[in-house]
């Protein structure tokens, strides 16, 4: 039998890993297209997007769901990644604070985006 019968604590990681995974899928499939459309094609005038049609899209529940998904999930993905990259870069000071800080940031963005969408 093993020498040290260690007590293992269940990690809370499944919650954040789930959001990270969802964000990864959204970021891989939708984010590049969104950057292309909203960041390049529309500003360059290649594609026309008028306020009325975007507003109409954000006004129905289907559109709201899509918008919250493409905003919130990649945010959780990025914050989770940065939090873990800090450990990879040996920045291990105040892990507890940075955990609250990064996941808190994703949480605030999620709530704010949700509130804005509901308000539309």
């Amino acid at each position: 039998m093993s020498k040290h019968s260690k007590q293992y604590q269940r990690a809370d990681e499944p919650i954040f890993w789930g959001l990270f995974g969802a964000g990864g899928v959204v970021a891989a499939f939708a984010t590049p297209a969104l950057i292309l459309i909203t960041g390049l094609l529309v500003p360059l005038g290649v594609l026309q997007l008028d306020y009325a049609s975007v507003n109409a899209f954000a006004s129905n529940w289907f559109g709201k769901l899509i918008l919250i998904a493409v905003i919130a999930f990649p945010m959780w993905h990025a914050c989770h990644r940065i939090y873990h990259a800090m450990h990879d870069l040996k920045v291990d000071v105040a892990r507890g604070f940075f955990k609250v800080f990064w996941y808190g940031m994703a949480f605030v963005v999620t709530i704010a985006a949700g509130a804005y969408l509901i308000a539309i």
Binding site: Y8, Q9, R10, A11, E13, W17
Partner: peptide
């Protein structure tokens, strides 16, 4: 319990 821990897969 090992799988679930920070020292485990996480």
């Amino acid at each position: 319990d090992i799988v679930n821990a920070e020292e485990g897969v996480w």
